[in-house]
């Protein structure tokens, strides 16, 4: 939990991404180098779904959109201090998710010292219940599965969310979580086993 001071940049080779994503990223980053205010919207639009989904499913609950917005704001402020070559070398998805997780941990840790603030109960708060849309489309299991995910131990929860909710490759998860790939795989499989066990119980009930 104590990685607030870690650098924000995450460097992997472009080969780890499907070609089209890498191309889109290159265009997006070039636009940011050209004019940061005009170009940054492209980064927000390209990655807000991934960033928000992780924020929501790691346990930020109703504050997930605020946490995701704060992540993008911190990313923008970091970019202000980066030179051209550093921006062009960024892997935006891993970089943003690293910022997100640092922001989340800092917020949770800051909140635990000041129990009165709104995010004090973030780790325990279950995901929101099914929406009208979920019920209508028959995907109401989303709510209870989300609640089961949010109840996983932190490392398993992070690994499962990054691997199966937003479908990152194991190597990228290892970079974001700063743990070896083997450890990622073991967190994922233990997390899934636990979910499977609990999900079966919920369905039987």
């Amino acid at each position: 939990m104590c990685n607030a001071g870690r650098p924000l940049g995450v460097y992997l080779s472009m080969d780890d991404l499907p070609e089209s994503d890498a191309d889109n990223d290159a265009v997006m980053l070039a636009a940011i180098v050209e004019d940061i205010d005009a170009g940054f919207a492209g980064m927000v639009r390209a990655y807000q779904r991934v960033v928000y989904s992780v924020a929501l499913r790691v346990g930020a609950g109703a504050d997930a959109d605020d946490l995701a917005a704060e992540c993008f704001l911190r990313a923008y402020r970091a970019l202000l201090g980066y030179d051209r070559s550093r921006i062009l070398a960024l892997r935006p998805r891993s970089w943003l998710l690293t910022i997100l997780l640092n922001t989340w941990r800092n917020t949770v840790r800051g909140a635990s010292r000041r129990p009165a603030v709104a995010m004090a109960d973030v780790p325990e708060r279950p995901a929101p219940g099914p929406t009208v849309e979920d019920v209508v489309t028959g995907s109401e299991t989303r709510g209870e599965l989300g609640a089961l995910v949010s109840a996983l131990p932190e490392n398993q929860r992070l690994a499962v969310v990054l691997r199966h909710v937003v479908e990152l490759p194991v190597a990228e998860i290892a970079a974001v979580m700063r743990i070896p790939e083997g450890t990622v795989k073991s967190h994922v499989s233990r997390g899934l086993a636990r979910l499977r066990e609990q999900y079966a119980k919920e369905v039987v009930r």
Binding site: Y52, R57, D65, D66, A68, A69, L73, V160
Partner: peptide, 22 residues
């Protein structure tokens, strides 16, 4: 894996375009 597929369904777009918040 059906559970993995259902987990994929937990990815959702934010309730509002976050450029407006940033």
């Amino acid at each position: 894996d059906p559970l993995a597929l259902r987990l994929g369904g937990l990815a959702v777009a934010p309730p509002r375009d976050l450029t407006g918040s940033v």
